[in-house]
């Protein structure tokens, strides 16, 4: 009756161990060759239909993929991130309210390599798209101004972005100060310091705060 149980149990353990080993090997190989860096589906409209009404879930998956893609290539010091923009575009098109994708996505896209994709114009496009769908989020204006100021060195637009953000109800009072500061003291170290200090002060995310601290140390 249950005489076979011991044999089946042992065999089960052996098979489990072997299959885990094989899966780990696949994972390692994939990390080495980055074989799956192919985006099969480019069309958000098609993905929306395939998600059967759960586009939010699919958006989350694509956002996760974007983070992993950036993290993995950043870690491997690849320097280029060709799929980052399409992944972010799909994630945000599927779920335009996914504000985290604009904030972090922009900070992945805009800095020059190896810290980012060196595509500030794509980052601006992304954040502008986010602002159109989430005009009540003052932080997106802040992100936009930040990219104009630090990456594009376009101080007039930076000031304008901070100014637009300052008009959003509930916006951080510092946006008004930033708008004035960037207009009058463009290119000064003090302005940059102010920007990073605001970031440090207004964010709760530990990674963002750490990044701001690093930049502040660099400015000294």
């Amino acid at each position: 009756m249950r005489r076979g149980s011991v044999g089946a149990g042992l065999l089960l353990a052996a098979c489990l161990a072997l299959s885990v080993a094989l899966v780990r090997r696949t994972d390692e190989q994939r990390a080495a060759t980055a074989r799956d860096e192919v985006l099969y589906l480019h069309s958000p409209a098609l993905l929306r239909r395939l998600s059967l009404g759960h586009e939010g879930l699919v958006a989350d998956l694509y956002w996760t993929r974007a983070v992993q893609y950036f993290g993995m290539r950043h870690h491997a010091r690849k320097g280029t991130f060709p799929l980052l923009d399409p992944l972010l575009e799909i994630a945000t098109a599927l779920d335009p309210k996914l504000t985290v994708a604009y904030q972090f996505g922009a900070s992945f896209l805009s800095p020059p390599p190896p810290d980012g994709a060196g595509q500030p114009e794509k980052a601006i496009e992304l954040v502008e798209f986010g602002i159109r769908h989430n005009p009540e989020k003052w932080r997106l204006f802040y992100n936009l101004g930040f990219i104009y100021y630090l990456e594009m060195k376009d101080y007039a637009r930076a000031s304008e972005a901070f100014g637009r953000g300052a008009k959003v109800p509930g916006a951080h009072p510092f946006l008004r100060v930033l708008a004035a500061q960037t207009a009058e003291h463009a290119g000064e170290v003090e302005t940059a310091r102010l920007l990073w200090e605001t970031t440090l002060e207004s964010s709760t995310d530990p990674l963002v705060r750490e990044n701001a601290r690093t930049h502040l140390r660099g400015l000294q």
Partner: peptide, 19 residues
């Protein structure tokens, strides 16, 4: 090999459950 080991594992579990 993976398919064989995974299927083997699942079948062993099936045998245990069935016994």
């Amino acid at each position: 090999i993976y398919a064989v080991t995974y299927t083997g594992m699942v079948l062993c579990a099936a045998v245990l459950a069935f016994e």
